[in-house]
Write a protein that binds this DNA or RNA. Structure first.
Lengths: 125, 125, 125, 125
DNA sequence: GTGGTCTAGACCACA
DNA sequence: GTGGTCTAGACCACA
């Protein structure tokens, strides 16, 4: 269920994090549901174990998952609508927005882009 | 006129690039105006010559500056309102927006952020 | 497979670029094939890591290769028959041709030279 | 009569050389005609004296001009149709052609370019 | 003086 | 191990 773009400039562990969060947002992963083990995911996606381990470490740090050593990794109750995750995203956006403004990007181009991405998707109003 | 944050995760050469572009946007640097020499800027900012050189190399590649070996580095005519620079910025924004949407950031939080950053600044409509 | 002439006026990083492109043209490097690592190539050719790095940086910028930090450098899909590379070559040719015409080189001498270089090589018709 | 492109990657002294040769080819400079002095040319074109000096040094070395110290610089009798100049041009062409071939430029694109540059100009058949 | 190339070598993030 | 950033410092071509 996780797809990695090896060509992307985004580190692989970030891609894994993003996609786990996305699966949670979409309701595909439910609270207390068990995630695939680090080793099985690494072998399935053909990735280095360290890479997957790092992704899961950070997910736990951000309160998306919790781990029970020897038993596995599980989705946290607070995972959906996790404030830290949102705040991080807004912070990244702020940086990108400031940089875009500095480079002469106009508000109307920006709003156009937002319309394309958010569309009429009422779920995200 | 350029300020470097040595502790930032953003590479120094990127910081220089951003700030030169900003100075151009603000109209402080004009087309065909000569920039400080690589060596003088390096010594002023307490940086290595190679780091400053790299910033200017990339600015030239992006059409912001041009260099005349033996003479100096100058602002290009197309520097202000440079399309490549804007496109890069929009691409970064797209990535950040998609990620934010995935993480459950709502459109209204986003529009609020944009209002904060772009404000009522008519220059950027 | 790469040979460097240290005494040439052509910068070493340009020589590396040229030869990687040539190896791609000859079909010796295939899309998504991994290139030797920067460090191994540098030590093999007795060059500094930075010099080799610069060559690959520019190859990536021109769309010949892509790099995956922590993994390696790979040949891009569009590497063979890369338009930017061809355009650059045609631009250099134009400069050389205009200069030759100015210096009194006749069309017939030119066509002779082309025949020598392109020969009856049907692959390049 | 000499125009310098400060933005060009071609060194200024090369541009001066090229244009003096061109003026000779076009019959505007005649054998034994005196050229403007280094200093007057430098001041007229707003160039460094060393730059102009170098251009004239090389023109003399190549047999285009001769100088009479204290009196001035003159066009040589053998300047028009100077073999060394032609040979140099052909050598540059060879390099550019080999590089273009290596980069996948086809013969037909090349012949098109030659037609554009040489046109139907019978003088250069 | 000014930019361009190159070396030697350190430290970091990522896999 | 692999690429990315950075420093210190040398030498060159050009103006």
């Amino acid at each position: 269920m996780i797809v990695i773009d090896l060509h992307s400039r985004i580190p692989i562990y970030e891609q894994i994090k993003e996609q786990v969060i996305l699966l949670v947002q979409m309701g595909i992963y439910q609270p207390d549901e068990q995630l695939p083990s680090i080793r099985s995911l690494a072998s399935e996606l053909n990735l280095n174990v360290n890479t997957v381990k790092r992704a899961f470490q950070e997910l736990e740090r951000d309160g998306i998952t919790y781990s029970m050593p020897g038993r596995g990794i599980y989705i946290n109750k607070g995972a959906f609508n996790n404030q830290k995750v949102k705040d991080d995203a807004l912070l990244s956006l702020e940086t990108a927005l400031l940089s875009a403004k500095n480079k002469g990007v106009h508000k109307k181009d920006l709003l156009l882009l937002i319309k394309q991405i958010y569309g009429e998707d009422e779920k995200f109003d």
